[in-house]
Design a protein around this nucleic acid. Structure first.
Lengths: 139, 139
DNA sequence: AATCATTATTGTAATGAATTCAAATTTGAA
DNA sequence: TTCAAATTTGAATTCATTACAATAATGATT
């Protein structure tokens, strides 16, 4: 399964004109396999075991590259550290004010009814909802 | 008009249990009179003329105080520097990718139709739309 | 008016995420 | 194998924000 995913990711990177180096594959695979919207630090700490020479700069470089290629997207919520997300379909984010966990938030097309004043041209939107998640709401 | 607004702001601060000091009044008045969603730096540079001894820390302190009192709100868009907004009614924000200007974005209640999964309790939401504003879209 | 505790303001130092940049390493074509 | 190009590294830098201790201002009480 992991190797399959790697094969997919190799193809994915090649299709985007990006050489599938070790660092790039590991970063991409990790962000894809995880729902935690990891930070650079989380990625670094996770991959440092497998790649002992790894530097944070490489992760910054890689994430910038993958973000510009629209393979990942960056998520910056309310002044927090930058996080990264492999879910590229249109969706919002919920952040629990207690535990800080970030959830992907599917929303249907009703949000598209928010209309811009004339002359404004939209390229992207972010919806962030804050509150308590089910695990923190109980207590 | 300015003195009237100051009188209003004095009352506003008092009602919130905040002593209406000079710095607080100047910061509040400035953010209220301006639609630019100013940064700490913009506020500092603007007020430094009138209050020569002003420090950035005071502005940070003041903005935190006013934000916690729900007199102002902070706006953090896509990893940018923190900005501040005196419009407290429900609204979104549009940032022009070219000129960087931020516009308030009224939206009607249709956005409220975005439904959270059960167990999630919402306290606040942010909607950010990116693209080009009318002045930048032309060229 | 003087005292004094409380609050506000200041300024310096520390923190930490993100960026810059040049050097070292790796890669892959010739 | 050679060599140029691309990748990775690590140290230094930048810059917004926070921490914190010192100073100044305020306002109630005597």
């Amino acid at each position: 399964m992991n190797s399959n995913l790697n094969l997919d990711n190799i193809a994915l990177l090649k299709a985007a004109g990006i050489k599938p180096s070790l660092v790039r594959l590991k970063v991409l695979t990790y962000v894809k396999n995880v729902t935690s919207h990891p930070t650079v630090d989380m990625i670094y700490k996770e991959l440092a075991d497998e790649i002992p020479t790894l530097s944070r700069t490489s992760i910054y470089n890689t994430l910038l590259l993958l973000t510009e290629a629209h393979i990942l997207r960056s998520v910056s919520i309310d002044g927090d550290v930058m996080r990264f997300d492999a879910t590229m379909s249109d969706h919002g984010h919920f952040r629990c004010s207690k535990c800080g966990k970030i959830y992907d938030l599917d929303f249907d097309t009703r949000i598209d009814k928010v209309v811009l004043p004339s002359g404004f041209k939209e390229t992207r939107r972010d919806l962030f909802i804050y509150g308590n998640c089910p695990y923190c709401e109980g207590q």
